[in-house]
Design a protein around this nucleic acid. Sequence first.
DNA 1: GACTAAACGAGACGGTACGTCGAGTCTTTGT
DNA 2: ACAAAGACTCGACGTACCGTCTCGTTTAGTC
Lengths: 213, 213, 213, 213
Amino acid sequence: MSDRSASAVSSARAPRRRPGGRTARGGAAVLTATLELLAEGGYAAMTVEEVAERAGVHKTTVYRRWGSREGLVAAALAAQGSANVPVPDTGTLRDDLIAVATSVARNLESPLGRALAQTIVGQADDPQIQQVADEFWQGRFADTAEVVARAINRGELPQGSDARQLVELSVAPVWFRSVVTRRPVDAAWIRTVVDAALAVAGPQDVHTTTAQG
Amino acid sequence: MSDRSASAVSSARAPRRRPGGRTARGGAAVLTATLELLAEGGYAAMTVEEVAERAGVHKTTVYRRWGSREGLVAAALAAQGSANVPVPDTGTLRDDLIAVATSVARNLESPLGRALAQTIVGQADDPQIQQVADEFWQGRFADTAEVVARAINRGELPQGSDARQLVELSVAPVWFRSVVTRRPVDAAWIRTVVDAALAVAGPQDVHTTTAQG
Amino acid sequence: MSDRSASAVSSARAPRRRPGGRTARGGAAVLTATLELLAEGGYAAMTVEEVAERAGVHKTTVYRRWGSREGLVAAALAAQGSANVPVPDTGTLRDDLIAVATSVARNLESPLGRALAQTIVGQADDPQIQQVADEFWQGRFADTAEVVARAINRGELPQGSDARQLVELSVAPVWFRSVVTRRPVDAAWIRTVVDAALAVAGPQDVHTTTAQG
Amino acid sequence: MSDRSASAVSSARAPRRRPGGRTARGGAAVLTATLELLAEGGYAAMTVEEVAERAGVHKTTVYRRWGSREGLVAAALAAQGSANVPVPDTGTLRDDLIAVATSVARNLESPLGRALAQTIVGQADDPQIQQVADEFWQGRFADTAEVVARAINRGELPQGSDARQLVELSVAPVWFRSVVTRRPVDAAWIRTVVDAALAVAGPQDVHTTTAQG
DNA sequence: GACTAAACGAGACGGTACGTCGAGTCTTTGT
DNA sequence: ACAAAGACTCGACGTACCGTCTCGTTTAGTC
């Protein structure tokens, strides 16, 4: 459906095109440097000047193209957010959801993932950041809806099951623990979370099987 | 980010005229002003200078007592966080959890609540903020554990039920929706969330029992 | 990270109160540095940043105290302009005027004098510069009026003689040559200029007397 | 110094639409725009970009042809300076000189005249500006020398009279007042100035003779 | 009731970063 | 072959806020 280019972040540390660098190439270096700095010290530690220096570009160039610090961050976020996360296909809904939640947990454990998460939440008042965040979630939920669609096809879930709710309930506690309360997320807990989500998915039946009577 | 308004004087908060008065009163005015500014424009818009002015205090005084911007915010957060939220007692666990989650949702809908949430998440890398956040969560989970304790006493839950898990699963989706994806939280959804949490609380039977009864 | 160009030249002028220097002393060093730079390369070459560096002061300090580049220049101009030039007293009006004109010529030959002259003229549209210039001229004409007053006392000039006109006509051509057409000013020419000024000073009598005799 | 107004479009000067238009008619539009901007806000307010926009030409074109801001200004100055001012011929030297001085005064009262004067003085350190200024003065003095030549022919002045000195003494005070001290120039004062100049031109008698006749 | 130490008011300063302006250069594209 | 378009480097501007420091004054706690 949505073919987002899966271009890697390429942590290749900026080639350092110092003086004559007629970069222009697209400014990918700038976005990379931005993400790099976010990963290193979070939003507060990311300065436009440092980004420019790392990208081998002049400060004014950054401002010309991205308008402001927020614009730059938003662009970097968008670039990173559109990097498609593969949707798992294990054969069962439960394992798929566990895989999704685990993937989220892993991501939030990485410095970059954590930094982006904090930025999305902490700078949510900025309209540009907000818009990128909205698009990000829309994309993520659209992607993961496939997991649920397959489950419906397999008969694991009734026709009208709410895909978003299922995924939201599976992922929310992971974000909460990892980003809000900052406590470790382990596999067992993820399983519990997914089971809870499944418990209210569709009209009970699928999960308990016997509650129908 | 660039609003000056030198006059300010704000909402009549600070008596401003403290000729002989030994301020010291505890600096409550400073913390109040801090929260006020956080509520108004979030963490980014809160400046020590503006806080000092609103509190009718000099900037250096703020630094003398709270050390830094983060220290000040941490203190304000602590002051606000320790304001005990009443633990509900409706008679049933489900309604208690719904009440707790609803209370959280209401709080996160308020400008101040939202600002504090964003601060806690966005500035989580700062040790002082982090500590306050840790204490806050510890307190909140301790408080709400009572709800579960009562349920156990009533026989709604088996002895060894995990109070924290129950509350966490009830509250996490609310935070996620409200703070992370920024979508509205309605009562029906809260009920679903709580039901999901209850579904994995204690050995299945409790749940099914409850559902049946 | 940010390599400061080690130019620093600074002809041993600034005490270089680097780190703990709670300068405040009055910022004379800043004004001195300003004049220095003006002398070196004129108005265009004078940057606030360079001034600050030479004065061993931070850029923001300069802006705090003088508001802007123009304000700084105006202050430096005022400081320099108020340095009283001694009014000559040779015994005769003609020699006094020659002395005044010669002094002006010498000043305009110096790099600093030339730079200030060019600044006064070239930046005349700036209100701050303008005001300083006005005060400067007022002061200069007031000072030199004494020369004329003495001449009146000596009977060289009638009572109501126009001091300003006399001085103006003596000095204007010097400025014109030196600053406007940029040609050298020699003593013989100064004598001619002063004679021309004297020729129209007072109600003819002095001149006509001379012409008659 | 900080007025933006990106729209501008100015006083309908530039045709703006030069689709096939090859090689600008000779760049007159550019020089006109330059003078226009100089007249409007002086040297400081004149930017190459604004000039280019008003002339309906691209910035790079300006740089190609005039090399730099100074080169452009020099060219504009030259274009304007070479516009011959008519040399008066009233019949008497005194009236001719008064006419010349008055013409200078009128010119210096106009925004453009004032701006050019300030530029010539303020940017005198730039070699290009300097050269244009030199040529300008050479031309002006050559032109006005005719006035003196005629006076000699009429017998108003002796053969070897110094034309340049006469004109210089007549004009210098006007420049001084108008450009340096920025005070108004009135007709009576101009007469005084010219009389002073005449007083030292040739052997005194000429002046008195003229006055008597 | 005077005396001292802590805390405060006031104000400037060093320092980092922001975002902006304009000069001048270079490359691509078109005519 | 020259010009339009547009992006880029570079140096500087002026501003905001952080956190520090100094000095003088106030006030509280103690003798």
